[in-house]
Every structure is written in C-alpha cells, then in structure tokens.
Amino acid sequence: MKDIKLTLSLKWYEILLVMIEMGLLAAGSWALADSLMIGSPVAAWRFLLLFIIWALPGAAILFFFKPGRD
C-alpha cells in the first residue's frame, strides 16, 4: 500500500482563522445541543445556522480566496 502524504503549511494568521472558525462551529454545536435539550428544535437548528453563517466569510477566504487560480 502506498503511503498517503498530507502536507499542510499554514501561516500563523491562517491558523488563527482556522481556530476562530472551529470556535464558531463549536459554539454553534453547543447552542444546538442546549436548545434541543430544552425542547426547542427550531431554535436549535437556527442557532447552529447562525454560527455557520457567521463562519461563512472566514471559510470562503480560507478555501477560495487564494492566489494561483488564474
């Protein structure tokens, strides 16, 4: 079997953004779980959606806003 090599090189500010994105998604998951536990399913998924929406610009920059596509 061939080795699978994964290399990931990120600058410090990229790492910071990744951490922020993960933090937002973690907060959204917490909100989802908490709202589900108190019997509020609409609030639960909308809370998650809220954090996903907040995370969108960062994700768009991380994955798409980079040089070398021309």
């Binding site: 929406i53 610009p57 768009a60 596509r69």
Partner: peptide, 17 residues
C-alpha cells in the same frame, strides 16, 4: 455575512488574488 462570503468566494474564483 452570506453576501460577504459569496463576494470573497467569487473574487477568489475569478483568479485575481
């Protein structure tokens, strides 16, 4: 936020970054 993400994505895909 959705528009901001879309704008960045489109700009990135346009290749002038």
């Amino acid at each position: 936020f959705v528009m901001l993400a879309t704008s960045f994505m489109a700009w990135g895909l346009s290749g002038k970054v």
